[in-house]
Design a protein around this nucleic acid. Structure first.
Lengths: 192, 192
DNA sequence: GCGCTTTCCTAAAATTCTTAGGCAACCTCC
DNA sequence: GGAGGTTGCCTAAGAATTTTAGGAAAGCGC
């Protein structure tokens, strides 16, 4: 009898392949069936490694949050102030552009306890670390964390949705303008 | 024979009901089947009024964009400066909180020509009208349009995703803080 | 080699999306 | 008021996805 080689499925590999699939065809096109096809395996086989379709999506989201946090941590090393702010912001923007499916996954609504155990927490901590350089008293610091989160997510999200495409000025210039003004705002001094 | 009363389906009614459904169960749970159940009608019957499932979602998105633009236009009447800015921002936030499914629909990626014919264009025009009160030269005005869009969308989106829940300070305070600082930023003078 | 666990399978049910074609209700026009 | 055309909703059917249940075989430890 022909030996039937194992495909070597693991939750890890499935989630990573699911993330790649998301980047290629969009997060909401990620399906257990498509993933099975990619591994040339029957659909039911995946259910030994994944609880269900939602479980797959959640795991991709957690992977994306980890990757984002890792990159942010790297980018922040040795930086402070405006430098740190820009580095952090660029990580977000670059990640979203390079991995739109993963980025969309990271925006998935997680139930509170899953969210609390995710790398999203690390991201918030890094944001606070950046803001320490601006010496804001509470509750301003928290307000600022929320503002930065909103701007970064909002901008990246709109740019990804094609909101700024084919229009001048260059989105890159807007990005720099925004970072400049955020820096100024956090310093409490007027823009040039 | 028992008279079989017509359900009175129209594209209009279906889209409105679909939007309500989105608010109740989430935009991505909006399905042709669920909509048919709601009208107590067979699924295939909807295909006389809707091209397909994607068509339904697109129409809900366009409805939401119209509603948002209408509310924004109402809110802006007779206002200028910081007042107009806050009124516009509150329309977004309030709409998203009252109609989360519709708001999610409004974030749907539309193909460029559909987007160009949507009420999204009116929203951008209103944003520029608000900014005329701040007297910004180009390209700063465009940068500012993008910044405001990012902040409004980003904040509302994060708040809706539960990002600020159960944490102090009150999100309402953050919202006011952000609007204050945006106003200041646009004026080019330091915050108090 | 012998069992045990893991891995992947077949089979089957439920749900959704979509198209094709039919009958009956309604509107128009004589 | 009936004839004919149009519209509205139907039945039927196929394809895809999700999920569960249970089976066979591969590879591990002894």
């Amino acid at each position: 009898m022909a030996a039937v080689p194992r495909a070597g499925l693991t939750t890890e590999r499935l989630v990573r392949a699911g993330a790649d699939l998301a980047d290629e065809v969009g997060f909401d096109q990620v399906t257990v069936s498509a993933l099975a096809r990619r591994f040339d395996v029957k659909v039911a086989s995946l259910y030994s490694h994944l609880k269900n379709s939602q479980d797959l999506r959640t795991r991709i989201a957690l992977l994306a949050l980890e990757e984002l946090a890792d990159r942010a941590a790297d980018a922040l090393a040795g930086r402070a102030g405006r430098d740190a702010l820009a580095a952090f912001a660029d990580v977000y923007r670059d990640y979203a552009r390079a991995h739109p499916g993963r980025y969309a996954a990271a925006r998935l609504r997680l139930d509170p306890e899953t969210a609390a155990a995710s790398a999203g927490v690390r991201q918030a901590q890094m944001m606070r670390a950046i803001l320490r350089g601006y010496d804001l008293p509470e509750p301003d610091q928290t307000h600022a964390v929320r503002l930065l989160g909103s701007v970064f997510h909002g901008y990246v999200s709109l740019e990804l949705a094609g909101g700024f495409s084919h229009s001048s000025p260059d989105p890159q210039d807007t990005w720099a303008w925004i970072l400049d003004h955020l820096d100024t705002l956090l310093r409490g001094r007027p823009a040039s």
